[in-house]
Design a protein around this nucleic acid. Structure first.
Lengths: 205, 205
DNA sequence: TAACTTGCCTAACGAACATTAGGTAGTACT
DNA sequence: AGTACTACCTAATGTTCGTTAGGCAAGTTA
């Protein structure tokens, strides 16, 4: 018996979460059944309930752990003493690396959480809002300093995060782009999109 | 040339599709049941089968019509005699206007089509690929002309479309941004992200 | 040794699911 | 008047769903 009472998940619980992540992200939460999950683990469906009380609880565990990973990894980078554009670049790259390290969980972080039952869904939504707010505030700060062009911070954040999140849909480790390549391309795209330098000829003001 | 011929629908069929669009986009295809759909229309579930043979067929009708709308509206703009960056700007704005005109259908165009059964799913996928290819080719053309920076065309297209598509998730007609505002912001963001002007970037060749 | 815990089992529950069979009014055309 | 079509109905099909009850064998602890 371990001395620490700080509860990490049992090995079995982790195995179940891992299998569920794969299933939920591949087929979607509603489509993946507890029977599917049990079969993946080579046990009977009822046995899952020795570990988790409900399907919703499994979704919740996956979602909340993934959310924490994003928040803990990315948010601290918004408060360093680096210049605004450097901070944003780091956040974008960090966000991408979290996606790629947790590709299955990311699908749940972005999409499947919507199927959480209340009150978990609201609690989760608040986390995401907090996450996005960090980006919005950073962009506002950059605009205030004249580093970024006068964009709509909320709109820009939405576009930015949507464009990055899509990575989880197509990224394959064996593909041509490395994580660094993706981070560089994405950061370049986004920072250029925010730069004050008048792009060569677009006539948008 | 046309992959699937779209015939005109009876009034009742249109009403069913309209209700289904709302339901599928709001709750997701799997979550929304034929019972839900029937209730929305104030008829019995079995009556739906007088009009459509299956739930899959309803999803298919919605998806394929929406796909046609995107392809017919946006693709012709890629072949005009305008400069590359102007064509891309028009395509982005046209894509956005289709999203906003068909907000419910767009959710299906982007996400719910995945639940189509074969062989419809593959046929649909081919349409989307054709759509994306037009953007990829345009970006390649722009890079070749030295108008766009040396980005990865496929990656950039993916980010670009993902960022625009997200609009259907939050746009509300009563919100602060008009369709024109959104089109301008998005086009600026994307074209600036592709411009050759080097911003503060680490890996410019 | 006895009690407790863990992790699985068999078996079944009620509910919800998409779908089908067969029928009936009302309307339109011949 | 007869035919055919439209748009719905009632009733039921078989399947799958999440979940529960109760039990059993092995390992751990007292």
């Amino acid at each position: 018996m371990p001395i620490t009472r700080i509860q990490d998940l049992s090995l079995r619980k982790q195995e179940i979460l891992s299998a569920a992540r794969g299933l939920f992200s591949k087929k979607g939460f509603q489509t993946a059944s507890m029977r599917d999950l049990a079969q993946t683990l080579d046990i009977k469906p009822a046995s899952l309930y020795s570990h988790y009380q409900s399907k919703d609880e499994i979704l919740w565990e996956i979602a909340i752990r993934c959310a924490r990973e994003f928040l803990d990894t990315v948010l601290p980078l918004s408060e360093t003493s680096l210049p605004v554009e450097k901070r944003l670049e780091q956040m974008v790259k960090a966000h991408i690396s979290v996606i790629i390290r947790n590709q299955d969980a990311s699908a749940i972080f972005f999409q499947e959480w919507i199927h959480l039952e209340e009150p978990r869904r609201s609690e989760y939504k608040a986390l995401i809002d907090r996450y996005e707010s960090a980006f919005i505030q950073l962009i506002e700060e950059g605009i205030g300093e004249g580093i970024f062009r006068n964009a709509n911070p909320r709109f820009t954040t939405s576009m930015m995060i949507a464009s990055i999140n899509w990575i989880h849909q197509w990224y394959r480790p064996e593909g041509k782009m490395s994580v660094e390549d993706i981070g560089n391309e994405a950061a370049h795209f986004i920072l250029a999109g925010l730069s004050v330098s008048p792009s060569n000829d677009t006539n948008v003001r």
